[in-house]
Amino acid sequence: MSKEKSAKAASPVKKQRKAWWHGENFHGYIFMIPTLIGWPLFCAYPMIWSAYCAFCDWDGINSPKWAGLKNFKYILTIDPVFKKSLLITLEYALINVPIMLILGLALAMLLNKTIRGIKIFRVLYYLPVIIPSVATLVLWNFIFKQDTGILNVMLRSAGLKPVGWLTDEKIVLLSLSIIRWWTVGGTMMIFLSGLQSVPGDLYEAADLDGAGKWAQFRHITIPMITPILFLQLITGLIGGLQAFNEASIMTGGGPNYGSHFINYDIYQTAFGSSKYGRACAEAWILFIIIAILTMITFSKSEAYVYYENE
């Protein structure tokens, strides 16, 4: 420390004359090289290209042909399925995200004690998340089968009517939601780490003041984990609005387009009908929806998120 002071006193001017290749600017950019290459390549260029194609007719094989607003006109006015897709996508995301958060938090609190075997339990809860989604969806497809799936077989043997898990328009979203809830282990783990990062002395202080468990929860736990809550909300929303695997692997868009998520429609339009221009237009519409919802969530967050360090 004293060395620095004396060095400073001895040559006050020297500090400014550092060679440019020692400076923070230069080093900053050197270390940023991966992003400097990756972002334009995998982010900027595809975005610009697909934005251009959204206004074109493109079969993915030959060059795009300019077509003006034709694609947007089709999606927003002519397509008989888009409104339903939109509704389904929003419903699926907006209902499941809060449920996952609440369930994840509740389970995290349940598993937040160092009782015997807790490590094993945590892993078992996390198990459904580890299994690749391809395998998971095949498994649940097998379980939800109308005639021979284990669920309906059990219902029938109990004398109840079998449920059209994947064949009834009104139930298919529920079935897919169940699969999502099954993988709540991931959310739970993140909440677990959040819960454990709350300083213990806050709880002790509250105990001394005579606060009950519920009051502690409301006034200490929840506020302290709002950053995590917020992060989970945003990622859950962004991910939920892009649901795809369920439709692609399990339902093929669902009975009567009952699970025809927008992201799935984009895939079908591009790789099924070879209308890449229209698919790009739809992808941009989805992107705008996601952006709007995210911005709303962000702006509301100022009110309730408590940051320790910032």
Binding site: D79, N256, Y257
Partner: peptide
């Protein structure tokens, strides 16, 4: 094909 399937299918199935 796909556009007309979309027009046709839901009402027909119902």
């Amino acid at each position: 094909k796909d556009d007309c399937d979309k027009i046709w299918n839901t009402d027909y199935n119902n």
